[in-house]
């Protein structure tokens, strides 16, 4: 049953994710006062990349160069399994870890200096992003369970956790923000290093990366909704998704790309403030 449910959810997650990426771009374009691409544009891009020629640079370390793409898709499918069936959120943390490994591996394996910079930036942004993700563990102290299904069940009796742990919610939101395109925290894909870690991944590989990213955006948004809002009807989730996306797009449109060190400092300070706040709260109260 669980397997069937997961398999059914994969195309749904993929389509929702890719349409959301398109919608993200569309909203940014509307803020900029232009018509903007249609919302299915990212899907067209992805299909186009699938039918493009694919070669590997001769400087690349081949197994890793190809392997990371499979790993990215596999990792977020695993993440989707966790979300759909309400498994332990620590596996999601492992999935997120794998995503960082993909960024690093894709960047370093190609032999291009731009990719290398993207990969290294991914490494030190990890130092800030991992604590951000791990902040979710604070929820455990309240609900006494790391199973997402238990956390949802807890909220159905005690109300959304969003109001009890606003700083944790902010941390999770920052994670999402650092993962969408054109966002101020997406330093691994900044313009100054061409396309960052993706520079040398093109053709089918780029299509694979886009697939992984679209499932990723679905998983991260679902995680936010499940952990901080709890049980809601389907339209409630849809509304929540769109609200999240619109806010992400507004932030992406209205801010410049931060310099790498600023970005890491920003994420790091949110994580440390969240941890310290709940630590002190736990000690004093």
């Amino acid at each position: 049953m669980e397997i069937i449910r997961t398999l059914l959810m994969i195309p749904v997650a993929f389509l929702v994710g890719i349409i959301f990426l398109g919608l993200h771009r569309k909203i940014i374009a509307r803020i900029q006062g232009r018509p903007g691409p249609p919302i299915q544009q990212e899907l067209y891009h992805l299909l186009k990349f699938f039918v493009k020629e694919m070669t590997a640079p001769e400087t690349a370390s081949k197994p890793i160069y190809f392997g990371v793409v499979a790993l990215l898709i596999g990792a977020w499918m695993l993440g989707l399994t966790v979300i759909v069936n309400g498994y332990n959120f620590l596996i999601l943390l492992a999935v997120f870890t794998m995503h960082k490994l993909v960024e690093h591996g894709a960047g370093l394996s190609s032999g291009s200096p731009y990719g290398k910079f993207g990969g290294v930036r991914s490494v030190y942004s990890t130092l800030a992003e991992h604590p951000l993700f791990a902040v979710l563990a604070i929820v455990y102290l309240k609900t006494n369970s790391l199973m997402i299904s238990d956390i949802v069940a807890y909220q159905s009796t005690h109300g959304p956790l969003l109001f009890q742990f606003p700083l944790c919610a902010l941390a999770t939101y920052t994670i999402m923000l650092s993962k969408v395109h054109h966002s101020p925290l997406a330093i691994v894909m900044a313009k100054d290093i061409v396309t960052g870690y993706k520079t040398e991944h093109f053709g089918v590989l780029r299509a694979g990366i886009l697939t992984g990213e679209s499932i990723e955006i679905f998983v991260l948004m679902s995680l936010f909704m499940l952990v901080y809002i709890g049980p809601a009807p389907l339209w409630g989730y849809a509304l929540g998704f769109i609200l999240l996306l619109v806010s992400l797009s507004f932030i992406s449109a209205l801010s410049p790309m931060l310099a790498p060190y600023h970005s890491v400092m920003f994420e790091g300070s949110i994580a440390s403030v969240a941890v310290l706040y709940y630590l002190l709260k736990g000690v004093i109260l």
């Binding site: 232009r34 903007g36 249609p38 186009k48 061409v194 396309t195």
Partner: peptide, 23 residues
């Protein structure tokens, strides 16, 4: 790419020009 002509509305992506992904 400016709003008056907006090349992107026709599905043309120009924001991270990279020969590896160009058509």
């Amino acid at each position: 790419i400016c709003p008056r002509y907006d090349i992107e509305q026709y599905g043309i992506f120009v924001h991270h020009p990279n020969p590896r992904e160009a058509d």
